[in-house]
Design a protein around this nucleic acid. Structure first.
Length: 495
RNA sequence: CGGGGCGUAGCUCAGCCUGGUUAGAGUGCCUGCUUUGGGAGCAGGAAGUCGGAGGUUCGAAUCCUCUCGCCCCGACCA
């Protein structure tokens, strides 16, 4: 590994190693004894808790309530919606027994007790549509029970062949919203509303620009009418699906008998939606902002926004500096998440590197020299700039600067995405762009599934989405087939 | 499932080809002293089923067989 003393491989050398190194050096996660599953360490989990706190507020502000449904789903439930089972069957963990017993001779210490086989196997939820809607069917009787707006924070399991920390793990944490409505229009409005919530989370909090769009038939959620998503572009030119919002139509309602008596006294099936974002967002965060020195966090999601490094030689200086640090901490309470690194066993330089790798947006160095001049030395993580700042009005300065850093990160990411977005006017050009730059490629597309498949096989690029706000010129032709273009499509090689 | 790589101290690895003292280094950890504005220095100390099982041998981290696991690249992936 060419990672050097920082322990971080430069991005230019190997992006994949860089990603793993950043996670390791920032202390976000660890490998676990279980294949494909990660341990989320306290610092990584603190970032997730920031995401949760922000998003949970937005979910509740849009009228949803949190609830919790079982981890286990009777296997037969999965099969009730034909497309759904097809989409998930290949990655389900299955529980078949409920008891172990002492092993016999030549066996392990404990073995599965064959007498304890379940009558019906349970699957560990890969997503909760089926278990939830079987219960929704009981909850919903009248049009007056609608809309039903439920969210749950949970873990799910998808037995993926190949995993990467945060981006794709066999078990991951997420929220899944599940709603039922009286009409298709209401369901559609819900789906779009939550897509907007996700876009706000991504852009205003993660400082990650996203494109809102619709998935093609091939890419949509198994069992949905159609799927909306937010797509983000990572630094290496690959796209990442950062959140999805599905209009399920009446597909699940029919399978689980989620019906109600309507205003005219007729029994109708509910129109449903589901939407989710996961711990994958942390992967997105890493690959949007971080650099060769480690993690870079947007202030709004940083567990620690400002870290204070006290510097001292004598005990007397130590008391003064720590006193001044504590005073600053009191002033910041409730306004800025500030941490004083008063560990005695490390020297300042060591701490600088450590917090840099952890992506803390602002570092303050506070020593006797500064106290004498009524200053602190302030270092920005996003630009690396380091300069003295007066201690008068410091709180206001910090608040302002955190806002500036937040805005700068978004702007930087937006510029990168714009530079990395190109329009192809024919297939050769399309292939050339992907080969030379990767990034996002816009193209007028007929939406022909055969072409979609062929493009994927030949270039590895998939339709990331059909952007909601894209305009299609009248009479536009598909750049691949020459047929009439049905939509402007955004292609990319994706994670 | 295919291709490649790797399992030796908490971590990173050397030692293996060519079997032979008491299995090593760096880092981390513990203790003490000195230090503290970009990864501190010195001294002392603790730390290991050499992934597992079997075999060859007087003797195995090293050779052979089997096995388990991990990582990377593919295939796969709401």
């Amino acid at each position: 590994m060419a990672a050097g003393k920082s322990g971080i491989t430069p991005r230019s050398e190997d992006y994949s190693s860089w990603y793993n190194d950043v996670i390791k050096q920032a202390g976000l996660s660890d490998h676990s004894p279980v294949r494909g599953c990660m341990v989320i360490k306290p610092y990584g989990y603190a970032i997730w808790e920031r995401v949760q706190s922000v998003l949970d507020g937005m979910i509740k502000a849009t009228g949803h309530q949190n609830a919790y449904f079982p981890l286990f789903i009777p296997m037969s439930f999965l099969t009730r919606e034909a497309e759904h089972v097809e989409g998930f069957a290949k990655e389900c963990a299955v529980v078949t027994h409920h008891r172990l017993k002492a092993g016999g001779e030549g066996e392990a210490a404990v073995v599965v007790d064959p007498a304890a086989e379940l009558e019906e196997p349970l699957i560990v939820r890969p997503t909760s549509e089926t278990i939830m809607y079987s219960v929704f069917a009981d909850w919903i009787e009248s049009w007056r029970d609608l809309p039903l707006l439920i969210n749950q924070w949970a873990n799910v399991v998808r037995w993926e062949m190949r995993t990467r920390p945060f981006l794709r793990t066999a078990e991951f944490l997420w929220q899944e919203g599940h709603t039922a409505h009286e009409t298709l229009e209401e369901a559609e409005a819900e789906v779009r509303k939550m897509l907007d919530v996700y876009a706000t989370l991504a852009e205003d909090y993660m400082a990650m620009p996203v494109i809102k769009g619709r998935k093609t038939e091939a890419e949509r959620f198994a069992g949905a009418l159609h799927t909306y998503c937010i797509e983000a572009l990572m630094q290496d030119g690959k796209a990442l699906q950062a959140g999805t919002s599905h209009n399920l139509g009446q597909n699940f309602a029919k399978a689980f008998n989620v019906s109600f008596t309507g205003r005219e006294g007729k029994v109708e099936y509910a129109w449903q939606t589901s939407w989710g974002v996961s711990t994958r967002l942390i992967g997105a965060l890493i690959m949007t902002h971080s650099d060769d020195n480690g993690l870079v966090l947007p202030p709004k999601l940083a567990p620690i926004e400002v870290v204070v490094i006290p510097i001292y030689k004598s005990d007397e200086d130590r008391d003064l500096v720590l006193g001044a640090s504590a005073e600053l901490a009191r002033a910041c309470e409730g306004k800025i998440r500030l941490h004083i690194d008063d560990r005695d066993q490390f020297r300042p330089g060591h701490k600088f590197f450590e917090w840099e790798k952890k992506g803390v947006p602002i570092r303050l160095e506070l020593g006797p020299r500064d106290l004498k001049e009524n200053k602190v030395v302030l270092a920005r993580r996003d630009t690396g700039e380091k300069s003295p700042v007066s201690r008068d009005g410091l709180l206001e300065h910090l608040v302002g600067l955190l806002g500036e850093i937040q805005a700068n990160l978004f702007q930087r990411a937006l510029e990168f995405r714009e530079q990395s977005t190109r329009r192809a006017s024919n297939y050769d050009e399309f292939k050339q762009i992907l080969k030379e730059h990767r990034g996002l490629v816009q193209a007028h597309f007929s939406l022909d599934p055969e072409w979609e498949e062929r493009i994927k096989n030949e270039t590895k690029a998939t339709v990331r989405c059909l952007p909601i706000d894209a305009e299609l010129p009248a009479g536009a032709q598909c750049i691949f087939s020459g047929a009439e273009a049905k939509s402007d499509a955004l292609f990319a090689i994706a994670y």
